[in-house]
Design a binder for these strands. Structure first.
Length: 948
RNA sequence: GCCGGUGUGGCGAAAUGGCAGACGCACAGGACUUAAAAUCCUGGGACCAUAAAAAGUCGUGUGGGUUCGAGUCCCACCACCGGCACCA
């Protein structure tokens, strides 16, 4: 028997192991549709041995016998970028190798990309289709805390399982480019990119990142200490002491993007706000470009919207309010400066830095009490308890700059410290939240906007209208439409120096440090200057990679320091400086892995320039439109993955890519040109698959029963790639039967029976025995008849168009239609079946390869299509002339309802069709007593008679 | 509440404004078989009618509209799924 090992790769307690399944027993007792258990490993080993799917970089020497060289006539020479065919970079979101092994959702996207990779190869592209491991992460570390087993070991075990499972599906990955984010040879460059961020600042004048060395210092920066402080405040990677998302259960801080409804994205544990000193990345500097450049890439509308919402751009004004009788000013952000006359009070967030300064002595106790109350709430409580507004008066008043009115200053937790300035002007007349608050605390509510519709109640009206009651000593807005009022008041505020037009973003800087062991250490050390102040410094590139220290205990220390603090010797350097103890978040490695694939073994750079230029299609940037029209796109040509990374990985990776672009390390402003989200696969019960529901489908079980080709085919046949769809194992049987029909279309039954018998007595020689199977005698080396060419070319047309449009399900149905037809042919021309195998190959490559070998061995050289192996065979062209029918069947409708059909010659004119239609006997009763008003002839399609 | 997506047989689904339900599952009948499995053939939206059929009527979430003609386009709703949400 083949060596297909179906047991888990290792006996690790957490490694995946296929479970016992009673279906497997049932299937084993029935006869297989075809010997996939031999064919699939045979071809997988062949592809691996021959390096069939190795992708070639410019400048690489391609062996003359490699299929890519055979196909493109590249011979033994070293091919420069100009002599290579056009590139096609097709990328999967690489998996986190969890202990649970592959689930059926992974192969959905991977099969789609593999089909397209194989299709593009057939179309003559140089295809880059790589795979790797996003292997830093919490589960391996938690397992280490529990058992003391080093996360490295767990990770390697899990990767082995994942790799075995993925390889058993016959994907055409170039494994020579495999990456693992936990490999020091990889994370050396993750750390290197961090240094690029650290050593850069964002120049608003040029709107791009520039080296920190070129940062101009303000005049008052005299001493080295002052310069350092200024420099450190401008870096793209900087240290900040601010309230952060602290998750006590996980023992680490989290980025905003990792907190969902006040709970950790991983595990669902409560998250609290806590001030801590952390590393941040200045993604906010890129908010505008991240938003604008969405218009240049081909992503789904909904995904772009998610990013747009997350970036959260809003236009408005900053307005300054003088605190009455004090030197302090409160600055607020508002999108409705036109309602300034309606501001009847102000609200600061409880954490606002001015709260303590302005609170009057008699309100101090109440304010302190409220601050404690707000601080004690988790994020979750703060949002969930939002139904009822709370707050207290500070005793202070502010002066409204437009009318000099004194308005009370309150604090309330419905104002967020992290958005805008952390303070608002409250306009209860025209803001829902302010309205609720004012109602509860009896604050004045005045009208300053008249709704366009007189019937509408102005109280709480938040739409656009016309300003009313907005007259001050120096400025009046009365009668102006909302947009005009906004412009006028903003101009006035700017003139008076108490306000200005502003664009505000929801996006926050990216909190980039974690209190973990299993992540990239920062290439940073801390030093004390002469006056004893601590500052950070980058390690030189020569110190990379910074390796994590060996540990036996992976928990944080008793004092709450990160686990790396346990490695005392590692922490302290000979010169007395100490290492940064935090590690990078899991997202760091996935921010740039698609670049490492381009040149995965480069020890001198994160990626070679020539490779980057070729694969990222730098040449396509110039004339974008025509390049795209010719199928050459800048960046990754197609990226397929789940929607769950919409505002995490996909935002972070775009940010890093833009920084690398600014610094001249990559040649495109965006990493992923086209992106498609595959839909979730639900359980057979229509619920999301989960262990607790017991409805999880294990790919290994499906492979035992039906083989990889059927599994791949089913995942694509279920429905459109982007849709959510329920699993149905009976459906796998359907496509499996189809592959059985393909098998029987090609092979001789008697020889197969002989093979089966030989196999029972000599199972060891299984693969060898496949040679006994003969080609079906009905397959003859003869030209195909026009009647046979028609369904073949209809199939070629449909499959080609559907693959271009990512419609896999309908492409497969076209293959089925063709096979159903070809089964009825008494003589089966080899040329026709040959083209069919080229079409089948992307979907079910093992079976196609096996049959290809048998077919081409017995047919003439002319038909076999040279020595080029199937995986690199040119895609068939369809000939429209062959699809033309001699006669047409035309439906005849009366008032849009089908009443009869007529058969006419394909050459019939519209007039002849009309005459024939009106002559139909069957339509007569429907025209009885009516007059024909109009006859519509859709050429070659349909006739409709309008009568009344 | 806001944004996006989806609603079609018993089920997964298919249909450039032009014959609704391709292809597949499940089901039913038949052939082959001692029998079963596998395979091959046939059937099939609902209703009405009938010995059986033909013919007919209705039918793509609901209600309107545009059109010779609407699953498809427009307007207004409903349901479900996903995302965001006290974002000033």
């Amino acid at each position: 028997m083949a060596k297909r090992s179906l047991a888990g790769g290792a006996n690790s307690a957490i490694a995946h192991r296929p479970r016992f399944d009673k279906n497997a027993v049932t299937m084993a007792s029935t006869r297989r549709q075809y010997p996939f258990q031999l064919i699939e490993p045979k071809w997988q080993q062949h592809w691996e041995r021959e390096q069939t799917f190795r992708a070639w970089n410019p400048g690489e020497k391609i062996p003359a016998q490699h299929p890519f060289a055979l196909r493109h006539g590249l011979g033994e020479a070293t091919a420069g970028a100009a002599s290579l065919p056009p590139k096609y970079y097709i990328l999967d979101m690489f998996p986190y190798p969890s202990g649970a092994g592959l689930h059926v959702g992974h192969p959905e996207g991977y099969t789609a990309t593999d089909i397209l990779a194989r299709y593009r190869r057939a179309r003559g592209f140089n295809v880059l289709h790589p795979m790797g491991w996003d292997a830093f992460g919490l589960p391996a570390e938690q397992y280490a805390v529990k058992t003391g087993q080093h996360p490295r070991h767990t990770t390697e075990t899990n990767i082995a399982t994942f790799k075995r499972q993925i390889q058993s599906l016959g994907f055409s990955y170039d494994w020579s480019r495999e990456v693992d984010t936990t490999d020091p040879k990889y994370f050396k460059w993750t750390q290197w990119i961090f240094l690029q961020l650290y050593n850069s600042w964002f120049n608003p004048a040029t709107n791009k990142a520039e080296p920190i060395d070129a940062l101009p210092y303000p005049a008052d920066c005299a001493t080295e200490e002052q310069k350092r402080a200024f420099r450190d405040s401008k870096r793209l990677a900087y240290v900040s002491e601010a309230p952060v998302n602290w998750c006590p259960e996980l023992g680490t801080v989290l980025a905003n993007e990792e907190v969902i409804d006040g709970k950790s994205e991983v595990g669902g544990f409560p998250v609290v706000r806590k001030p801590m000193r952390q590393w941040m990345l200045r993604i906010t500097a890129y908010a505008e470009r991240l938003l604008n450049d969405l218009d240049t890439i081909d992503w789904s509308h909904s995904l772009k919207e998610m990013q747009r919402n997350w970036i959260g751009r809003s236009e408005g004004a900053l307005v300054e309010f003088q605190v009455s009788g004090s030197k302090f000013k409160v600055s607020v952000f508002t999108t409705r400066p036109d309602t300034l006359f309606g501001a009847t009070y102000m609200v600061l967030s409880p954490e606002h830095s001015l709260v303590n300064e302005i609170t009057t002595p008699e309100h101090r106790q109440a304010v302190k009490g409220y601050q404690d109350f707000a601080a004690g709430k988790s994020e979750l409580e703060r949002t969930e308890l939002a139904k009822e507004k709370t707050g207290v008066f500070t005793g202070a008043f502010a002066v409204n700059p437009v009318n000099a009115e004194k308005i009370p200053i309150w604090i309330a937790d419905y104002v967020l410290a992290s958005y805008g300035t952390g303070a608002i002007m409250a306009v209860p007349g025209h803001d829902t939240r302010d309205f609720e608050f004012a109602e509860k605390f009896n604050l004045p509510i005045v009208q300053v906007v008249q709704p366009p519709d007189r019937e509408t109640d102005w109280r709480g009206f938040v739409g656009d209208g016309r300003s009313v009651n907005s007259v001050g000593a120096e400025v009046s807005l009365d009668g102006l439409a909302t947009s005009e009022a906004k412009a006028k008041i903003t101009g006035w505020l700017a003139c008076k120096g108490v306000g200005q037009k502003t664009i505000n973003y929801k996006l926050r800087d990216w909190l980039f440090s974690r209190q973990r062991y299993w992540g990239e250490p920062f290439p940073i050390v801390w030093k004390k200057d002469a006056s004893g102040n601590l500052h950070h410094e980058a390690l030189p590139e020569s110190a990379l990679p910074v390796m994590p220290p060996p540990l036996t205990d992976y928990k944080p220390t008793a004092t709450g320091e990160p686990p790396l603090a346990r490695a005392k010797e590692w922490v302290t350097l000979p010169d007395g400086s100490t290492r940064e103890l935090n590690t990078m978040p899991q997202w760091a490695g996935s921010c740039w892995y698609y670049l490492r694939y381009l040149d995965a073994r480069n020890a001198a750079a994160f990626c070679g320039k020539e490779a980057e230029n070729y694969w990222m299609g730098a040449s396509a940037i110039g004339d974008r439109q025509s390049a795209i029209a010719n199928g050459r796109t800048p960046g990754v040509d197609l990226y397929v993955g789940g929607t769950e990374h919409a505002v995490l990985h996909l935002l972070y990776a775009r940010f890093w890519h833009k920084v690398l672009f600014d610094l001249g390390h990559v040649s495109t402003p965006e990493p992923f040109f086209k992106l498609v989200n595959q839909g979730l696969i639900l359980g057979e019960d229509g619920q999301k698959m989960s262990k607790s529901r017991g409805n999880v489908i294990n790919p290994d079980d499906i492979l035992i029963d039906y083989g990889a080709d059927a599994f791949r085919l089913y995942e694509m046949f279920m429905g459109p790639l982007e849709m959510v769809k329920p699993w149905n194992t009976k459906g796998v049987e359907g496509v499996y039967r189809f592959l059985g029909r393909v098998w029987r279309l090609f092979v001789d039954e008697a020889s197969e029976t002989e093979f089966e018998q030989a196999l029972t007595t000599d199972a060891q020689r299984g693969v060898e025995l496949l040679g006994k199977i003969q080609l079906n005698a009905a397959i003859k080396d003869v030209p195909a008849t026009p009647a046979q060419l028609k369904p073949l070319h209809a199939c070629i047309k449909k499959v080609t168009e559907d693959l271009d449009g990512l419609r896999f399900n309908t492409a497969i149905s076209a293959l089925m239609v063709f096979v159903n037809e070809a089964m009825t042919w008494e003589v089966k021309p080899a040329v026709a079946l040959r083209d069919f195998l080229v079409l089948l190959q992307p979907f079910s490559p093992h079976l196609a390869e096996e049959l290809w070998g048998k077919l081409t061995a017995v047919i003439s050289h002319q038909c076999s299509g040279s020595r080029v192996p199937l995986a690199y065979q040119p895609w068939p062209q369809f000939d429209p002339a062959l699809l033309v029918e001699d006669t047409l069947e035309i439906p005849v409708q009366v008032n849009g309802k089908l009443r009869d059909r007529i058969t006419v010659a394909a050459t019939a004119t519209d007039k002849e069709i009309e005459t024939a239609a009106l002559a139909c006997e069957k339509i007569k009763p429907f025209l009885e007593g009516k007059t024909i008003k109009k006859v519509i002839v859709v050429p070659k399609k349909l006739v409709n008679i309008a009568a009344a």
